[in-house]
Design a protein around this nucleic acid. Structure first.
Length: 430
RNA sequence: GUGGGCGUAGCUCAGUCGGUUAGAGCGCCAGGUUGUGGCCCUGGAGGUCGCCGGUUCAAGUCCGGUCGCUCACCCCA
């Protein structure tokens, strides 16, 4: 293999033109959709103080930070997620900004952990946030942005689905079912695993970790075995706290219905999300086949800004990574041909024609055309081969014959058709 | 962090029981006479067989370690 002296760091990627083209394809879709919804792009530094993450993100993230001590003896970390930076930035200036604040970013994020499929030490993540709006319309808008971007990339409701829950509802349900308030987080952790663990295990863990009786554990488990907002309403709707949360979620779903995105979304109480700062509606978007990790995850985090020392502002947002998304698009053959492309390749015959060809190329480039030619004298056959491999749509042939008539021969490389065009006309442009 | 699988050319892979100078296809470069690409023909470059050590007269092949990749677990941006 390669000379082992210089290797890429594990979990990091090179982007050769072919790969960068895929990345750009995705970024461009993200930016287009962001702007369509009226969001503005921002960025921050990739390196932050370690402190920014220690308490805000939860213990799980902290143990996987890509952190170190810098030369000024500062404890620093490459950013593992964007939200704390956003909170920090807004803490300074949110007061002066018109609300709601609608910002997006495409940061490169880092984590120090063993890489596996869909999970590297570095990735790009599209972050979209609405800050300063507590109503459910903001929650719906956020999910709509995420879904529209995926649609833009060719993923319809047959390919992906958004699973939505609400921490407030879950908390109300769990407390109604007997989970003490100080055990809620522990209960979330159990529920997060409901899909992947056998029911007996869940029952056991609910008793051990969430501190409920066997009967209560059974009741909680039943909630997840019979999902559906209506069922929840039927069973617990008489509880005021639960009823209010159910009502809000119904609003949320009806907004998405109105946006014609209803086919993508479903209520799913097992969606918890690991991050400690979520406070309301949370969601994750998955491929329907269920083969890949989550493509996107987000939710409401109403307390984070004040915790970072800013104004108390409600916020909702999501992150969508490039790694899993690229895998899914590749799997579904949704990546367009992103090869080299040239408008013209100029082929010249002889020295005099070559000089004229350089002038022609220069003028075409001034018009914005993508133009290339052989950088050294080569036979016509060879020049045509280069034109082919560089993806030229048309080849312009300039030789003594053409020069004497003031024309150029233009060959369409797809059809093979060739026509004569006045040089002046070519240089004047379209 | 724990466990499994895999490392031979840029890519996909072959390589017999351990035996001499490690192969193929694709790709790349050059040529097929300075007027026409795709197809075709000819030639070429490119490998310390991931790395280090061990066994052996002899290691791509067997053993140990290590690094990398990968899958699962843990966890989840």
């Amino acid at each position: 293999m390669s000379n082992a002296a210089f290797t890429r760091l594990p979990g990091f990627r090179d982007f050769v033109p072919e790969d960068l083209a895929v990345r750009s394809h995705i970024f461009e879709a993200w930016r287009r959709v962001s702007r369509r919804y009226g969001f503005q792009e921002y960025d921050g530094p990739p390196l932050e103080t370690l402190e920014l993450y220690v308490e805000k993100s939860g213990e799980e993230i902290v143990s996987q930070l890509y952190n170190f001590t810098d030369k000024g003896d500062r404890e620093v970390s490459l950013r593992p997620e964007m939200t704390p930076s956003l909170a920090r930035i807004l803490a300074d200036r949110s007061r002066a900004l018109p609300k709601p604040i609608r910002w997006f970013s495409i940061p490169q994020l880092f984590r120090y952990e063993r890489q596996q499929r869909g999970r590297l030490r570095e990735h790009f993540q599209w972050n979209v946030d609405v800050v300063g709006e507590s109503e459910v319309g903001a929650d719906a808008e956020i999910l709509a942005v995420a879904l529209d971007a995926l649609r833009e990339l060719g993923l319809g409701p047959e390919a992906i689905r958004a699973r939505v829950s609400d921490r407030r509802l879950l908390s109300a349900l769990l407390q109604t079912a007997g989970v003490p308030e100080d055990r809620l987080l522990a209960a979330y952790a159990v529920i997060d695993k409901v899909e992947r663990e056998p029911p007996e295990k869940t029952l056991e863990r609910l008793q051990d970790e969430a501190g409920v009786t066997p009967a209560q554990a059974g009741e909680i488990l039943a909630l997840f075995q019979n999902p559906g907002l209506d069922r929840v309403a039927d069973r617990f709707g008489d509880q005021e706290a639960v009823a209010a949360e159910v009502e809000r979620l119904r609003d949320y779903f009806s907004i998405l219905e109105a946006m014609e995105l209803g086919d993508f979304v479903e209520f799913d109480l097992t969606i918890v999300r690991g991050l400690a700062y979520y406070t309301g509606i949370v969601f994750e978007i998955f491929d329907r086949a269920g083969e890949l990790r989550a493509i996107c995850g987000g939710g409401r985090y109403d307390r984070l800004l004040e915790r970072v020392g800013g104004e108390s502002l409600p916020a909702v947002g999501f992150g969508m990574g490039d790694v899993v998304l690229t895998e899914l698009l590749r799997e579904r053959a949704l990546l367009p041909d992103l090869g080299r492309e040239l408008d013209y390749f100029v082929v010249s015959v002889g020295d005099e024609a070559r000089r004229r060809a350089l002038q022609l190329a220069h003028r075409l480039r001034e018009q914005g055309a993508r133009v290339a030619y052989s950088l050294r004298g080569q036979g016509v056959r060879k020049q045509f081969k280069s034109a082919e491999s560089e993806g030229a749509r048309e080849v312009i042939v300039l030789g003594p014959e053409e020069l004497s008539q003031g024309i150029a021969r233009v060959r369409d490389m797809t059809s093979g058709e060739e026509r004569e065009v006045q040089l002046e006309e070519l240089e004047r442009g379209p």
